[in-house]
Design a protein around this nucleic acid. Structure first.
Lengths: 204, 204
DNA sequence: GTCTATATTTGGATAGAC
DNA sequence: GTCTATCCAAATATAGAC
């Protein structure tokens, strides 16, 4: 396989420029906050005038959408890199650690993917599907460890986002909450073992 | 005590108008989102033109600040209403329930108080002190139950905000996560009992 | 204290020449 | 595809009359 004899160089260049714009946009939201993304400044950053951006994206929301897709793909990839051993505690730890690491290493991305903070923005269905696939994979992984009760899944996601949230908003760049990851995994694991799968009512 | 013989009716009226403005502002942020507060609309809502607001507040941030103060006072009050029995599990449940209820019953207030989402806004020191007092009271209450290890306190706040966050952003108005409150309290309580106070290193 | 009028800024988006 | 020029809208804030 030698590649197509005729490459669409124009499309390639266009794609490269789109990527460059998105990279610059990520830089901006990381330093200015998600809402602080201004097309003028973004254009300047890649050596253009603002209207030129419209050759590459239909609107500002289209840029957010493309960023969302990149973020969701990154999550999907990260999720599939999590090692599994079959031991519940070990795997829970690894999973939580991965999730919290992914979120705290780029708070702007976390905000874009997991919180609803941009006024009129919602990802397109195609883009959102990527995120759904990521959560699906998470659920599968949990099921492999024996976490099948939806309530337990919900509790675990709450723990993950809770640590993440506190870390980001009260100790940005630090590790005060991230460090609790192993404790949290252990706590959740014990809880799981104490309350077997089909959730019983009236347990005291 | 018959009250001051000379009341400052002018100051009273002014204070009443300020309160009216703040009430209207709360209504707006609840329906439009925190960032959606527009002075024009706010003024209309209380039967004024926008510039007239400046007779009552120096700036938009001053309005946010006053709202923050109200929210923090409400939290403080709520915190002191939490019944304590001395039984750790019972009291943890009540506390978590109260916190999550407080947050989910008014997501805009939660966003204002506990997340940093308004671009340039930070509460003034005097206002922030109210919030600090609330958290101080929370810490005292936990200490009364035996939760003194700072890591445990952090873990517990993470659980509380995690449930809150998931509830607000993924099931607004519902109870999918709020309902996990008792489970969470039990889980945390067991964890606490399993790991006595001075946190041991190298526990497996 | 409230109004009208206006300044100022900012940002997204479009038209049309080149 | 990129630019200049421009439009339009929204929003905070100020000046000054009444």
């Amino acid at each position: 396989m030698l590649g197509n004899p005729i490459r669409d160089r124009r499309a390639e260049r266009r794609e490269a420029t789109r990527a460059e714009i998105l990279d610059a946009a990520w830089e901006m939201v990381r330093s200015e906050g998600l809402a602080g993304l201004a097309l003028r400044d973004l254009a300047r950053k890649v050596g253009m005038q603002a209207p030129s951006l419209y050759s590459y994206f239909d609107s500002k929301h289209a840029i957010y959408d493309a960023m969302f897709a990149q973020g969701a793909r990154a999550y999907l990839e990260r999720e599939s890199l999590i090692p599994t051993t079959g031991d519940a505690l070990t795997d829970l730890r690894a999973g939580l650690r991965s999730f919290i690491g992914f979120c705290t290493e780029d708070p702007a991305r976390y905000q874009l993917l997991f919180q609803r903070t941009i006024p009129g923005f919602e990802p397109t269905p195609e883009t959102f599907a990527i995120a759904v696939a990521g959560l699906e994979r998470l659920k599968d992984r949990l099921a492999g460890i024996g976490v099948t009760d939806p309530r337990s899944v919900d509790l675990l996601t709450a723990i993950g986002t809770g640590i993440t949230d506190q870390q980001i908003s009260n100790d940005p760049g630090g590790g005060r909450w991230s460090r609790l990851v192993d404790d949290a995994a252990e706590m959740f694991c014990n809880h799981m073992n104490a309350t077997p799968n089909p959730p019983r009512r009236n347990r005291k």
